[in-house]
Design a binder for these strands. Structure first.
Lengths: 151, 151
DNA sequence: CTCAATGCAAATCATTTGCACACCC
DNA sequence: GGGTGTGCAAATGATTTGCATTGAG
């Protein structure tokens, strides 16, 4: 589901507050980018974002994209992923509970899942190493199961 | 522990067999690289490997390093990691059971752990998505716990 | 007005590629 | 000997950076 209008407003509010509290300027570019990010639902890379904004005749430089994405990351409005080997992927993270990913190695499809048992592992880690876990990333690389009934 | 002589031999044997079966040449460079990789115990990146071989007066080009590392990956003698954002890290994986990593965000230290519960999650994933999981990667990003008794 | 943010182009840096030469099979 | 592997240097491609200009506060 694409983000609703009210939700969009709420997210804008969060970003706005973040910018204020950190003495960052509220430029139109930053909000345009936030908007674009929250309008779609998929994982995206910077190039795709750049092109889709250009297509809508909203020109922002790649430099600004990278800059703004950095801000959105720090204020928790998006998450970053290393799916492939080179470029990073991102996804919006507000109204969106922490989840992990299954990646199909053949097609590149990405599924999301959420398993509470990861929390238990985390707790153990914190005790064993005497650390405070701030985040985690878990990826399963898989392939579709062979259909045994096929010709 | 650094790999023992007999173990080194065994690894060499594995690589040798792999090369044969895939009609790849057994060049001295390839074995020198395998050797270098198995002589140390840490996670390493390509540049470090390059420099440490150069230091021992064994000159291989970076191109050959990347090429050989690709081979070692496919035959399962090393594993690849994306710890930071840019370059990849590797570690030898023979005689070395599958494990995951805790990364301290402040110091960059890397700990290894092995939690059997990840296997259970994996099984669930396979059932839910009807896939066959080939591998996974799990990282916890953490920071050292504040010592509450300090001044 | 002032300084931080933007856009552009150039710089970076890990990795890849093209090509001439070397050497494994 | 023939063709794959190597080394070198140039190419690539995502991200970063420098700098002149713009515009938010």
């Amino acid at each position: 589901m694409s983000t609703t209008i009210e939700a969009q407003e709420q997210v804008k509010e969060v970003f706005s507050r973040y910018l204020e509290q950190n003495n960052q300027r509220k430029t139109p570019e930053r909000f345009a980018i936030l908007n674009e990010v929250y309008e779609s639902d998929d994982h995206f890379d910077v190039e795709t974002l750049y092109l889709s904004m250009k297509e809508k005749n909203y020109r922002v430089s790649r430099a600004t994209l990278y800059n703004t994405i950095e801000l959105l990351l720090t204020c928790g409005l998006i998450r970053k992923h290393q799916f492939g080997q080179n470029q990073s992927f991102y996804e919006k993270s507000y109204f969106n509970k922490q989840h992990d990913h299954v990646i199909l190695s053949d097609t590149g499809e990405v599924f999301e899942f959420c398993d509470p048992r990861i929390e238990n592992i985390k707790k153990t880690i914190e005790e064993v190493f005497n650390v405070e876990v701030e985040s985690h990333s878990l990826y399963f690389y898989a392939k579709k199961k062979q259909d045994l009934n096929q010709k």
